[in-house]
Protein backbone atom coordinates (compact mmCIF):
# COMPACT_ATOMS: atom_id res chain seq x y z
CA UNK A 1 0.00 0.00 0.00
CA UNK A 2 2.89 2.24 0.81
CA UNK A 3 4.22 1.87 -2.66
CA UNK A 4 0.81 2.61 -4.11
CA UNK A 5 0.73 5.84 -2.19
CA UNK A 6 4.10 6.69 -3.60
CA UNK A 7 2.84 6.13 -7.12
CA UNK A 8 -0.19 8.31 -6.57
CA UNK A 9 1.80 11.12 -5.07
CA UNK A 10 4.21 10.83 -7.96
CA UNK A 11 1.36 11.13 -10.46
CA UNK A 12 -0.08 14.01 -8.52
CA UNK A 13 3.28 15.76 -8.47
CA UNK A 14 3.53 15.52 -12.22
CA UNK A 15 0.03 16.88 -12.66
CA UNK A 16 0.84 19.72 -10.31
CA UNK A 17 4.02 20.46 -12.14
CA UNK A 18 2.16 20.72 -15.39
CA UNK A 19 -0.67 22.85 -14.12
CA UNK A 20 1.83 25.31 -12.67
CA UNK A 21 3.57 25.56 -15.98
CA UNK A 22 1.84 28.70 -17.25
CA UNK A 23 3.76 30.41 -19.94
CA UNK A 24 5.38 33.55 -18.72
CA UNK A 25 6.46 34.63 -22.17
CA UNK A 26 3.89 36.71 -23.94
CA UNK A 27 3.02 34.80 -27.05
CA UNK A 28 1.26 36.53 -29.90
CA UNK A 29 -1.79 34.52 -30.89
CA UNK A 30 -3.60 37.17 -32.91
CA UNK A 31 -3.93 37.27 -36.65
CA UNK A 32 -3.50 40.54 -38.54
CA UNK A 33 -6.60 42.19 -40.01
CA UNK A 34 -7.46 43.49 -43.48
CA UNK A 35 -10.01 46.29 -43.30
CA UNK A 36 -11.97 47.10 -46.47
CA UNK A 37 -14.55 49.19 -44.62
CA UNK A 38 -12.50 52.36 -44.49
CA UNK A 39 -13.46 55.44 -46.50
CA UNK A 40 -12.32 55.15 -50.08
CA UNK A 41 -11.14 51.56 -49.77
CA UNK A 42 -10.34 50.21 -53.24
CA UNK A 43 -10.94 47.76 -54.72
CA UNK A 44 -13.80 46.20 -52.84
CA UNK A 45 -15.88 43.25 -53.88
CA UNK A 46 -17.54 43.57 -57.33
CA UNK A 47 -15.47 46.63 -58.29
CA UNK A 48 -14.13 47.03 -61.82
CA UNK A 49 -10.50 47.69 -62.80
CA UNK A 50 -9.67 49.11 -66.22
CA UNK A 51 -6.93 47.99 -68.58
CA UNK A 52 -4.37 50.63 -69.47
CA UNK A 53 -5.17 52.65 -66.37
CA UNK A 54 -3.68 53.24 -62.94
CA UNK A 55 -5.63 52.78 -59.72
CA UNK A 56 -4.76 53.32 -56.07
CA UNK A 57 -4.88 50.29 -53.84
CA UNK A 58 -6.26 51.51 -50.55
CA UNK A 59 -6.94 49.25 -47.56
CA UNK A 60 -6.13 49.35 -43.84
CA UNK A 61 -3.90 46.66 -42.36
CA UNK A 62 -3.59 46.24 -38.60
CA UNK A 63 -2.04 43.88 -36.09
CA UNK A 64 -1.71 43.74 -32.32
CA UNK A 65 2.10 43.36 -32.44
CA UNK A 66 3.80 44.11 -35.75
CA UNK A 67 2.78 43.79 -39.39
CA UNK A 68 4.87 41.67 -41.74
CA UNK A 69 4.23 41.91 -45.48
CA UNK A 70 1.40 41.64 -47.99
CA UNK A 71 0.91 40.28 -51.43
CA UNK A 72 -1.58 40.95 -54.21
CA UNK A 73 -2.43 38.31 -56.73
CA UNK A 74 -4.69 38.95 -59.69
CA UNK A 75 -5.78 36.00 -61.80
CA UNK A 76 -8.69 35.16 -64.07
CA UNK A 77 -11.86 33.52 -62.87
CA UNK A 78 -13.29 32.64 -66.27
CA UNK A 79 -13.95 29.09 -65.04
CA UNK A 80 -15.64 30.35 -61.84
CA UNK A 81 -13.09 28.32 -59.88
CA UNK A 82 -13.03 30.68 -57.00
CA UNK A 83 -15.43 32.64 -54.90
CA UNK A 84 -15.18 35.69 -52.74
CA UNK A 85 -14.58 35.88 -49.01
CA UNK A 86 -17.12 38.68 -48.85
CA UNK A 87 -20.77 38.17 -48.00
CA UNK A 88 -22.25 39.44 -51.26
CA UNK A 89 -21.67 37.51 -54.46
CA UNK A 90 -21.17 39.41 -57.69
CA UNK A 91 -22.71 38.69 -61.07
CA UNK A 92 -20.34 36.62 -63.11
CA UNK A 93 -20.17 36.36 -66.87
CA UNK A 94 -20.58 33.05 -68.66
CA UNK A 95 -17.78 30.51 -68.22
CA UNK A 96 -15.20 30.85 -71.00
CA UNK A 97 -11.74 29.58 -71.95
CA UNK A 98 -8.80 31.88 -71.33
CA UNK A 99 -6.76 33.05 -74.33
CA UNK A 100 -4.37 35.61 -72.91
CA UNK A 101 -5.48 36.34 -69.36
CA UNK A 102 -3.83 38.99 -67.21
CA UNK A 103 -1.83 37.69 -64.26
CA UNK A 104 0.07 39.60 -61.59
CA UNK A 105 1.63 38.34 -58.37
CA UNK A 106 3.54 40.94 -56.38
CA UNK A 107 4.58 41.03 -52.74
CA UNK A 108 5.15 44.27 -50.87
CA UNK A 109 6.99 45.19 -47.69
CA UNK A 110 5.39 47.08 -44.86
CA UNK A 111 7.68 49.51 -43.02
CA UNK A 112 9.06 47.93 -39.83
CA UNK A 113 7.46 48.39 -36.45
CA UNK A 114 3.94 49.21 -37.71
CA UNK A 115 0.80 47.94 -35.99
CA UNK A 116 -1.42 49.82 -38.42
CA UNK A 117 -0.75 50.66 -42.05
CA UNK A 118 -2.96 52.24 -44.68
CA UNK A 119 -1.82 51.46 -48.18
CA UNK A 120 -1.73 54.02 -50.91
CA UNK A 121 -0.21 52.02 -53.71
CA UNK A 122 -0.47 53.01 -57.35
CA UNK A 123 -0.87 50.01 -59.62
CA UNK A 124 -0.88 50.31 -63.41
CA UNK A 125 -2.53 47.62 -65.43
CA UNK A 126 -1.17 47.28 -68.97
CA UNK A 127 -3.68 46.62 -71.71
CA UNK A 128 -1.74 43.78 -73.22
CA UNK A 129 1.60 42.05 -73.67
CA UNK A 130 3.59 40.56 -76.56
CA UNK A 131 0.83 37.97 -77.07
CA UNK A 132 -1.75 40.69 -77.67
CA UNK A 133 -4.54 42.19 -75.64
CA UNK A 134 -5.43 40.75 -72.24
CA UNK A 135 -8.74 38.93 -71.85
CA UNK A 136 -11.57 41.01 -70.45
CA UNK A 137 -13.94 39.54 -67.90
CA UNK A 138 -14.12 38.15 -64.37
CA UNK A 139 -10.97 38.24 -62.30
CA UNK A 140 -10.01 37.40 -58.78
CA UNK A 141 -8.20 39.94 -56.61
CA UNK A 142 -6.46 38.14 -53.78
CA UNK A 143 -4.87 39.93 -50.82
CA UNK A 144 -2.72 38.07 -48.32
CA UNK A 145 -1.36 39.73 -45.19
CA UNK A 146 1.10 38.42 -42.62
CA UNK A 147 2.40 39.70 -39.33
CA UNK A 148 5.97 39.35 -38.07
CA UNK A 149 5.12 36.16 -36.15
CA UNK A 150 3.86 34.42 -39.25
CA UNK A 151 0.10 34.69 -38.66
CA UNK A 152 -1.76 35.39 -41.86
CA UNK A 153 -5.13 36.58 -43.20
CA UNK A 154 -6.54 36.45 -46.70
CA UNK A 155 -9.21 38.33 -48.62
CA UNK A 156 -10.45 37.19 -51.97
CA UNK A 157 -12.42 39.67 -54.05
CA UNK A 158 -14.40 39.15 -57.23
CA UNK A 159 -13.68 41.95 -59.65
CA UNK A 160 -14.16 42.69 -63.32
CA UNK A 161 -11.37 43.86 -65.57
CA UNK A 162 -12.70 45.82 -68.52
CA UNK A 163 -11.95 48.62 -70.98
CA UNK A 164 -13.10 52.08 -70.07
Amino acid sequence: MKSLKFLFSFAFLILLLNSCEKDDDEIDQEKPKINLEIDGAFPVNCDTLYFGETFTFKVLFSDNAELGSYSIDVHHNFDHHTHTTEVNECDLEEIKDPVNPYVSIVDYDIPEGKTSYETSLEITIPSGDENGEFDRGDYHFFISLTDKEGWSTQKGLSIKMMDR
Binding site: G68, S69, Y70, I105, V106, D107, T146, W151
Partner: peptide
Amino acid sequence: NPSSDHDR
Protein backbone atom coordinates in the same frame (compact mmCIF):
# COMPACT_ATOMS: atom_id res chain seq x y z
CA ASN B 1 8.44 27.98 -39.80
CA PRO B 2 5.63 30.17 -41.16
CA SER B 3 7.32 33.48 -41.96
CA SER B 4 6.04 36.93 -42.77
CA ASP B 5 7.18 36.57 -46.41
CA HIS B 6 5.12 36.02 -49.52
CA ASP B 7 6.16 34.14 -52.62
CA ARG B 8 5.76 35.90 -55.93
